[in-house]
Each structure stands twice: as structure tokens, then as C-alpha cells.
Simulated assay, not measured.
Amino acid sequence: MISIIVVDDHPVVRDGIRSMLAGVADFEVVAEAGDGVAAVDLAAAHDPDVVVIDLRMPGGGGVDAIRAMRRRGLRARVLVLTTYDTDSDTVAAIEAGATGYLLKDAPSSQLFDAVRATAAGESVLSPAVAARLLSHVRSPQRTAQLSAREREVLVLVARGTSNKLIARELFVSEATVKTHLSHVYEKLGVTDRAAAVATAYDLGILG
């Protein structure tokens, strides 16, 4: 039996989701909430397998609730069920610790499968959200964060140029080159020159 908490600020929507889930033999809806703050308290009290939660709710949104559950070390896995599929929503929710992300226009069978997969710790993304996240990872958003000078340094690093020679070519100090590199590492999420170059090729920064 998979225990579930349903969180949505619209009572009619929440009742509909609860009724759908309660009608499935291996599901048990143990509680429901109208905002993220209440959701965290209920998750602590009931220790459910899955929290099915909306994102944008007055009095406490879904992303903040997910972060709070993770901070408190709660066992529950989170399935986001929402109408929002913008980059800011999807990426924030996944980074906060959501196991799954489904849109409310999904058929009930997909919701049931998503709840089971989430309970098992499997990542679940609706096709539209998966495509958006993949686009986010591959898009120039991370590329655009690099300054023109940081890109120049990265190009020279890719050619195997030492910091000393980069400094000479760009008419800056070695300390400045190291500063630019540290910024590049941070923005690309890497820790060394080789990883920076590999990631840059992956993202299309280096052709």
C-alpha cells in the first residue's frame, strides 16, 4: 500500500485528485493540505510514501515545501502535479528535490503510474517537462552566463595554453586568469580545466 498526501490550494481540484487516488486499490490517501507549510507538517506527522503537490499556492508554495521536507530529512518522495511547465518552475522543483513532475492534463492512468514510480524512487517527468528540461540543459542559458573574457580564456584553455601564456596573450595577470577560470568552473559546474573544456563542448560553447 502506497500512502499519499495530496496538496493543492483549490479545494475542488484537491478533492478530485484525492478521489481519483483513493479509488486505486494500492493507494491510501492519508491526509490533504491547501498549502506548502501545512504539507510539510503533515508529511512529518504521517510519514507518507508520496506527497502529490501543486507548485504555486498562497500561504506556501510547492518548491519551498519540497526544500523544507528535504531539510527536515523527511522520507516522503515528492510528485509535483501542476499546470505550470515553465523553466523556472520545472528546474526549481527538480533542484529542490522533487522525484517527479507531471502536468495536470495528464490522463489518470499516467498519474497512477507516476505515483507508483515516485514511491519507488524512480524519476518521473511528463513528456513536455522532460523536453523542456533537456532543452534547458542544452540551451545557451548556461553559455550566456559566461562573459566574453571568460569565453576567451576557455578557448585558450581548450588549446592547451597555460595560465602564464593566457595572461600574456590577453595582457592580464596570471591572477586575473585564475579568477576568470574559477568563475568558468562555477558557472559550468565543474572543478578542473579538462571538465570545463568537455562541458563547454557539450554545451556548444566550443565548436
Rank of each mutant, 00 (worst) to 15 (best):
P127I: 07
D49M: 06
A131F: 08
P127E: 15
A22P: 01
M20R: 13
K164T: 14
A195K: 08
V184R: 05
R159M: 07
A33D: 03
G23C: 08
A114H: 01
P140V: 02
M57V: 05
L133M: 15
V155N: 09
V63D: 07
V115D: 03
D105K: 09
D87H: 12
D49A: 12
G121M: 10
G61M: 08
L133V: 15
M1T: 11
E28Q: 14
D49F: 06
R142T: 11
G100K: 01
L165P: 02
Q110V: 09
L133I: 15
R71W: 09
Q145M: 13
L125I: 02
A76D: 04
A76P: 07
V115H: 08
V190E: 05
V37R: 15
M69V: 15
L156K: 14
L146T: 05
V172E: 01
I53L: 13
S19F: 11
G189Y: 10
D105E: 11
Y185P: 00
R70I: 04
L102P: 01
M57C: 12
T86R: 12
V40Y: 13
H10N: 14
V80Y: 02
Q110M: 10
V137H: 11
T143N: 09
A131H: 13
D35A: 07
R159W: 00
V29M: 13
N163G: 12
V155F: 12
A194L: 02
A148H: 09
P107F: 01
T199K: 14
R151S: 07
T191V: 11
S19W: 09
A196C: 06
V40W: 08
F171Y: 10
A114T: 04
A39V: 02
A114L: 02
V29W: 05
A195C: 05
A93S: 07
F27D: 04
A144Y: 12
A33P: 04
A43V: 11
L103I: 14
R77E: 15
R70Y: 06
R132L: 15
S162C: 06
S182T: 12
N163C: 09
D192C: 05
R56V: 14
I53A: 10
L206K: 02
V12I: 15
A194C: 00
A198W: 01
S135V: 01
L154D: 03
A93H: 06
T143D: 01
A31T: 06
L203N: 04
I2G: 09
V78A: 10
V197N: 00
T179A: 11
A195E: 11
F27R: 07
S19N: 12
A167D: 02
D9H: 13
R70E: 14
E150I: 08
R14A: 04
T161A: 11
D9I: 04
L74R: 11
A128D: 14
V52Q: 02
T176E: 07
S123F: 03
V129T: 14
D35G: 04
D105M: 05
G59S: 10
S182H: 10
G16N: 09
G16M: 03
D35E: 14
G189N: 09
V80T: 00
A93K: 02
R72I: 09
V157E: 01
T82W: 02
A96I: 06
A65R: 07
A175M: 05
I5C: 08
V37C: 11
T90W: 06
L125S: 02
L103N: 08
H10R: 13
V137T: 10
